[in-house]
């Protein structure tokens, strides 16, 4: 405990640095948000569609969904196993290259990164303060505040976590947006996911947008009756009724939907449409990706010492 290095700063640096960091991140977030909203096609687009960019012709688009899922999922798991900042950086670079190969408009992956901010910023603040001190650690101490010892190893750990989370988030777009959702799910079924689960997911995805419309309708109804979220107890009662009503309506809708599906010959499974190829190029691409992932993990473990 006594051997760790400490860097001392005068106490007034703490509020100064804190404010600086908060201001910078706030400005960055705001400009990013502006950029993303400026790119949106419709104003009320609350839920982005998963497979919006499915019509492209890039290398990733032509990849057989089954192989794509295996390769990118495998790479994602390799990426989250990394420990050293350097290898995470390499993985991040690789995913960025993939997104540009797939020619996905940048506002979509950026939006994913923004969505994770809350959780990740918590790590960035909490980890340096709570990580137990080890011998080789460097602490930053402001003035006499021993309690606020800022551990650089914690900061590094938090940054590595953020990098890994960004990696996977960036991979989601090439993984999902480059084929119709139906094809991706059918690929998953071919790979062994129970067919029931993927079909249910397909139907759930469809009804999401229906219910979102319903919620907006109900909300404008509530607002027309002068509902304003605010005083806690009343708000909770109204929102409880609101959610209850949403459930009642959706249950009633399920009966109608189910009857309609049966009338069209639904017998417990949906028909399959997609043709899968499995050509040499698919195999090759998959091998390249898995090789890259495993190579990164290997290099990472050699670098950090031991598995």
């Amino acid at each position: 405990m006594t051997e760790h290095q400490t860097i001392h700063f005068a106490a007034y640096w703490l509020p100064l640095l804190g404010c600086g960091v908060i201001l910078c991140s706030w400005l960055a977030m705001r400009s990013l948000r502006r950029m993303i909203t400026a790119r949106q096609t419709t104003a009320d687009e609350q839920i982005p569609t998963i497979d919006a960019g499915a019509a492209g012709t890039s290398l990733i688009h032509r990849w057989d969904p089954r192989f794509k899922i295996i390769a990118l999922l495998g790479f994602a798991f390799c990426a989250v196993s990394l420990h050293s900042p350097r290898s995470v950086l390499v993985a991040l670079l690789l995913t960025i290259i993939t997104v540009s190969i797939a020619r996905i408009p940048w506002h979509r992956p950026l939006r994913r990164l923004l969505a994770m901010n809350g959780f990740l910023v918590m790590f960035l603040i909490v980890m340096p303060l709570t990580v137990p001190t080890r011998i080789s650690d460097t602490l930053i101490i402001f003035g006499d505040w021993q309690l606020m010892a800022f551990n650089l190893r914690g900061l590094e750990l938090a940054l590595v976590i953020i990098g890994k989370a960004w990696c996977v988030a960036l991979l989601m777009e090439p993984l999902l947006a480059t084929a119709p959702l139906g094809a991706t799910l059918e690929g998953l079924t071919r790979l062994g996911l129970p067919g029931k689960i993927s079909e249910t997911l397909l139907i759930a995805h469809r009804y999401l947008f229906v219910f979102l419309g319903e919620v907006q309708r109900m909300r404008s109804g509530m607002e027309a009756r002068a509902f304003r979220p605010g005083r806690r107890w009343d708000t909770l009662r109204d929102l409880g009724n609101f959610v209850g009503m949403l459930l009642v309506r959706s249950f009633e809708r399920t009966h109608r939907v189910y009857a309609a599906m049966q009338a069209r010959g639904y017998n417990g499974s949906l028909p399959h449409h997609h043709q899968f190829r499995g050509a040499t190029s698919d195999w090759l691409q998959t091998m390249v990706w898995l090789g890259l992932g495993l190579g990164l993990v290997l290099a990472d473990r050699l670098h950090t010492g031991g598995f």
Binding site: T200, Y207, F211, L212, V257
Partner: peptide, 17 residues
């Protein structure tokens, strides 16, 4: 299963409140 699907969608939307 269609019912489960519709209900998961409803809960998803409810969790956006």
């Amino acid at each position: 299963l269609p019912k489960v699907a519709v209900i998961s969608a409803a809960f998803f939307v409810a969790s956006l409140v």
